[in-house]
Simulated assay, not measured.
Amino acid sequence: MIVITAPTGHIGGRLLDILLETSTRTGELRVIVRDPAKLPDAVRDRVDIITGSHGDPEVVDRAFAGADAVFWLIPPDMSASSIDSVYTGFTGAATKALTTHGVGHVVGVSALGRGTPVAGSAGHVTATLAVDDLIASTGVAYRALTNPSFMDNVVWQANSIRDTGIFTGTLPADYAAPLVATRDIAAAAATLLLDRSWTGTAEVPLLGPEDLTPTDMAHTISEVLGREIHYEQESLDSLRAHLTARGAAPEIVTAFVDMMRAKNNGLDNAVPRTPATTTPTTFREWCTRTLAPAVFA
């Protein structure tokens, strides 16, 4: 039995599709979901559904009973009073349930940055790495999928790209960094969950096929959309103001700003790209498959 958290999100939903394609028996997969109605009808008929939040002790206790492996992804919480409550606080109940039910393997979505020197906290990244340590402390076999920024984050700016021809970010326009598509994260998770011959604790970096500058990204988006698209760098102070205006809690805003400051200073660039760390989806392919439909919707 494989338990999947966040099964209606970009990563969890794609992972569920992959696992259903390989599953031969109904009941081999279990999902934890707040609203089962968000699952497609065909999916609801083939999985065991536990309704609720995977931060709830009673929910994860029921979900992990009889489970061999768990896919762990923490949902965002823009209103939380502290960054620790979003990450290690949310995961605490799960670690107890992993131990109680003797779950053998866990695959988690994490971030690049372990061992990379940063001045102070790296916000969400620092909190994510603490979750990896917490899960590993249970003695479960654990693989942390460590990621740079997602290509899919650009979709949040589809309206701006369509209406103004501009997308923004905090990186300098000429700063090259890795990017990964969420579909490739899901594929890597599926590979690990289906072949559980691995033991111990390790990180699995997923770096995408190439490092890109925001200028490179703007050029590719322009070619795919058939119109000129420009990148504008946003200051960290501006990012703080925008997140605050959207209603994010002060500690969450600070964590985002600290994370982006660390990325500006090389947080995502320390791991070398090798065949093992290279995922297949190019930014051009992602723009064609995902961004263009969102812009033209």
Rank of each mutant, 00 (worst) to 15 (best):
I4K: 12
I4Q: 03
T5W: 11
A6I: 06
T8N: 11
G12A: 10
R14E: 04
S23N: 04
L29S: 10
I32K: 10
V33P: 15
G52W: 09
G52S: 12
S53A: 15
G55C: 07
D56E: 04
D56F: 12
V70I: 05
F71L: 08
D77K: 02
S79F: 15
S82N: 08
I83M: 10
V86I: 01
T100H: 13
G102I: 14
A119P: 01
G120C: 02
A122L: 01
H124L: 00
L129G: 00
A130V: 00
D132G: 00
A136E: 03
Y142D: 05
V154N: 13
V155N: 13
R162W: 06
A173G: 07
A176Q: 09
R183C: 12
A190F: 05
A190Q: 01
L193V: 10
R196C: 10
P205H: 06
P205Q: 03
I221P: 00
V224Q: 01
G226L: 00
G226A: 00
E228L: 08
I229W: 03
H230Q: 08
Q233M: 09
T244P: 06
A245N: 08
A245I: 03
R246C: 13
M259V: 06
M260R: 11
N265G: 08
G266Y: 14
A270D: 15
V271F: 03
T277L: 02
F283N: 14
W286F: 15
V295C: 03
F296V: 15
